[in-house]
């Protein structure tokens, strides 16, 4: 039996590589851009590899793309996150999403089993406590007024090829 879409199936079969290539090139356009950071953002880490990271490194780490530090510690993300303006700023600066979008992003990633969920804190104080408790943890803060121990401070450096890195 041949239904009328039989020809269509054969067409897709013979041209699938062309479709994929064209779609890939088309959707790549306009997607490589640097993240907007501000002086409001501060990064802290407990027993992580480096004391300075580029913006693209930070973004990659906080999107769950790194599982383990070179020193052997598991990467544990700490986010001070709720529905306030600071969280909106964090969501935009790090994830380029709304706060709802960030929640959905993590829900999907954890469910797929490809990453562990971050530790969410309601305040900077709570986030700093979590950071101190877990070796390998890294946190992002917005408008942090609390005193941060020297050993936790991480600086964000510029990279020459920032724009070419996702």
């Amino acid at each position: 039996m041949n239904l009328y879409y039989n020809y269509l199936m054969q067409y897709i079969k013979s041209n699938i590589s062309v479709f994929v290539t064209v779609a890939f090139l088309f959707l790549m356009i306009g997607n490589c851009s640097a993240q907007n950071y501000s002086s409001r953002i501060r990064i802290c880490g407990n027993s992580i590899d480096e004391k300075s990271y580029t913006k693209s490194d930070i973004k990659s780490i906080f999107k769950g793309e790194k599982s383990r530090w070179k020193n052997g510690n598991s990467v544990i993300l700490v986010l001070r996150f709720n529905e306030d303006e600071k969280s909106q700023h964090l969501a935009k600066a790090i994830y380029n999403k709304s706060t709802q979008g960030v929640k959905k992003f993590w829900l999907g990633l954890v469910f797929s089993g490809r990453s562990n969920a971050p530790l969410f804190a309601d305040s900077n104080e709570e986030a700093l406590l979590m950071l101190a408790k877990h070796k390998g943890s890294i946190g992002v803060f917005v408008d942090c007024k609390e005193e941060i121990p020297t050993e936790f401070k991480v600086s964000i450096i510029k990279s020459e090829n920032e724009k070419s890195i996702k």
Partner: peptide, 8 residues
């Protein structure tokens, strides 16, 4: 995953 949100 060449760009955010895309996977091939």
């Amino acid at each position: 995953k060449p760009v955010d949100g895309m996977r091939i």
